[in-house]
Design a protein around this nucleic acid. Sequence first.
DNA 1: AATGAATGAGAGTTCATTCAT
DNA 2: AATGAATGAACTCTCATTCAT
Lengths: 210, 210, 210, 210
Amino acid sequence: MKTRQTPVIAARKSPRQARSTQLVNAILEAAVRVLGREGARRFTTARVAAEAGVSVGSLYQYFPNKEAILFRLQTDEWRQTGDLLTRILSDPQRQPLDRLRLAVRAFFHSECDEAQVRLALGDAAPLYRQTPEARELRKSGARRSESFMKEVLPRATAAQRKIAADIVMTTMSAVGKTISERTVSRAEVDNFAQATSDMFCAYLQKLAQN
Amino acid sequence: MKTRQTPVIAARKSPRQARSTQLVNAILEAAVRVLGREGARRFTTARVAAEAGVSVGSLYQYFPNKEAILFRLQTDEWRQTGDLLTRILSDPQRQPLDRLRLAVRAFFHSECDEAQVRLALGDAAPLYRQTPEARELRKSGARRSESFMKEVLPRATAAQRKIAADIVMTTMSAVGKTISERTVSRAEVDNFAQATSDMFCAYLQKLAQN
Amino acid sequence: MKTRQTPVIAARKSPRQARSTQLVNAILEAAVRVLGREGARRFTTARVAAEAGVSVGSLYQYFPNKEAILFRLQTDEWRQTGDLLTRILSDPQRQPLDRLRLAVRAFFHSECDEAQVRLALGDAAPLYRQTPEARELRKSGARRSESFMKEVLPRATAAQRKIAADIVMTTMSAVGKTISERTVSRAEVDNFAQATSDMFCAYLQKLAQN
Amino acid sequence: MKTRQTPVIAARKSPRQARSTQLVNAILEAAVRVLGREGARRFTTARVAAEAGVSVGSLYQYFPNKEAILFRLQTDEWRQTGDLLTRILSDPQRQPLDRLRLAVRAFFHSECDEAQVRLALGDAAPLYRQTPEARELRKSGARRSESFMKEVLPRATAAQRKIAADIVMTTMSAVGKTISERTVSRAEVDNFAQATSDMFCAYLQKLAQN
DNA sequence: AATGAATGAGAGTTCATTCAT
DNA sequence: AATGAATGAACTCTCATTCAT
């Protein structure tokens, strides 16, 4: 048949039993390995199934299609990163801008871990982009970021905070992705995180003055 | 992406060369249309050839493989954008930071033109990423940007200027790509360009103070 | 993919050149052999291509999908039979009811030729039923039949002729198909044709009396 | 096809048998629904089992394979229709030809009920055609029909009656199937039944005269 | 008896590339 | 130089059936 326009990517069944969960995990781990080793182009259901030591049929019992696997991988990743950022940005022990610096650094490093997989996942983005779940995660990121801005820009209007939040988050994520694509050393990543944070801080301080 | 046009200098070439150039252009233009209309997934040599009114065989006479077409498209695009930025950033009539603001705006708008094609080209990136030409173009971008920084940060060290140039350019290009993926109005793009410029200016002014 | 709802079954290209025509014919003949030998269930594009001594790719150059092959086979068949019936039913040399008797006999025999293939084609009907072309052919059959009824029932109303035409044609085709499914001898087919004709004649004569 | 119901005699059976019967009926009812809703192409054991609220394994405990389900469905249907026809055709209260008219009408309407399922069942015919049971049912139909002909054609030879019975039954069933495939209104079905009966009566009356 | 996860052959279809004409 | 028919490996996904639990 025919190629589906908007692919269905919700997981096929909620793995209630331990066995299922194991299988799903085995598949996801295999997917990461295939993606890392072979790249997005050679990421096929057959290869993933073989790598997971599972039959294609079983794979399709848990994921309705190839996109669903990639989507799940990306979603898990986004959720993890989101949690990390939330934890850092809402730590009451530190000054807001210090938290921001830490967040940038942590985010950049997390992006650079398994850069190969991330790259491949990015390459596969056309397969899962524009799904409701992706939108939802973006929104929750926006909420987190705006609530952080309340602390940094207490006197700004909601609109001002919104744009500041948007620009900072967009920049962080876009730049993080870019540097993860250049294969760079930890030190270089730190430098980049430093510079990026400097830029954010300069910007936010200036906004706070007005 | 501006519509490709047969360059005037083609008239000077031998008939054979002129023919080739025409063909190559026809193919490139067709490729843009196919990419825009069908997306990266359905971008096939057969479709491009048909769209160009040319046989597959002829296509392969001018491009060794599918990737080469995409690469050429991206390269041309980068070159055009690079020229645009060079022109704006080196305009002696305006203050450096004003030039930067103009550059960001122009770049964002250029990224948002034919966003569909750009997205598709991005999706196709795995096919041409990491080629020497891509590297070369990045370097020349870096040079342009560093020379601009000499004007803005006259007292900074080369290393400082380098990192500032890097962060500004990386941010501009990554953010530009991101917003071109969200389908947004001209006004929103302007807002984003404004905010991004504010951030750059705040950062560079702070650096200039030290 | 995905299974297409209403399949596209128009032939992919009009075989202008002799080569193409040969190929198309080779494929159609191979299809008949596969259908006859393996049945509708095992009728696959791969098998047809192999039987035709052609690659799958070539097959798909001439037929957009599997259904199209079956549809073409059925269409050719219908057209042939339609021509045969038209020829017989409009022969001015014979009495109308004699023509009808001949038509029934010819039709039943034609149905019983290659009964195996016909059966398989019938089994495959769900794949091509309800296409515009199929409808068109049914309509042209109805026209032929109604014009024949003008001769047999000159004094009947259009509505009466229409229903007579419909019932006779429907019966002929339905019964023809049924007896081709029972594997029967030529003599038995003749007997059946005789009886069916008797029934038609009794009916039409009675109608003509009123 | 009437909705299947748990027969009253099930109460007399041992609990084990009752359970089996219930399960078999649940599966058969589910099969009808799947066939009607999804068509022959998508009629799968998994779907039937799910629809019946039963595991695939259980399904295979009662039916050796997919074909068996369809066969059973068709068989039941044939038996029901056969009973209906027997009842009508042997009613001593009415004239034979009136009974025939009633039988045709009842048969056509029964064929048109759940036409979707019947169509699907027909599409699935290759899976169960040519089984001994199918043959047996056809024979019993022939017997019923020949015994009816004894009343209508008392002076005809056995051979004459045989062929008359055959042609009438074949026509009725073939035409019934055909009109159930065209989606038509009750009124149209009545018209068709009327015309078909007229044809049968004209034929049989003529035969009776000789 | 009942379950339903697992299997894996097999289906339809696409497409980059070649090469005889 | 140009054509475009031909190739066939590769891909995604389905489903009848089995069998360990």
